[in-house]
């Protein structure tokens, strides 16, 4: 088990969010959830988590918009974002990758794969990321 990570989960389906929180905690991480795009974005900027897990279909603004806004933020843009979505169209995957997502995981997911992806995302943070975050 790698180090404990602070994970922001932006997921509108409360049951899925509940299950994920439970399982991520069970493997030693420190997850918290937001159920709308807007509040999720605000939480991301305010708390700067280690990893963000983002759904694409959200009630107020969709995941693409969240991604876009994150990219425009000086510091939050370095946080790796893992898309977990039931929208598995190639188009959606391509767009998400173009917008800077770290990887794309389809629902229903294999939890072990999701955990592996989180570890990978946290360890392959941008070379400049540590500096940017640490810079005064």
């Amino acid at each position: 088990m790698a180090r404990s990570l602070r994970i922001l989960l932006i997921e509108d389906d409360r049951e899925i969010a509940r299950a994920l929180l439970l399982r991520l905690k069970a493997v030693g991480h420190d997850p918290f959830a937001m159920h709308e795009g807007g509040s999720g974005l605000a939480a991301a900027i305010a708390t700067l988590p280690d990893v963000i897990i983002l759904d694409l279909r959200l009630p107020d603004m969709d995941g693409f918009a969240v991604l876009q806004q994150l990219q425009q933020h000086d510091i939050a843009r370095v946080i790796p974002v893992i898309i977990v979505s039931a929208n598995v169209a190639e188009r959606a995957k391509r767009e998400a990758m173009l917008l800077g997502a770290h990887c794309f995981i389809e629902k229903p997911y294999d939890f072990r794969k999701l955990v592996a992806a989180i570890d990978r995302a946290a360890s392959t943070q941008l070379p400049g990321a540590a500096n940017t975050v640490a810079a005064p």
Partner: peptide, 21 residues
């Protein structure tokens, strides 16, 4: 999409129980 979301929920909770959480 509509199918996958409940499937995810079913699988998640079945797994949670199976894993003894």
């Amino acid at each position: 999409h509509e199918f996958r979301t409940p499937l995810t929920v079913i699988k998640e909770f079945a797994s949670i129980m199976d894993e003894g959480l």
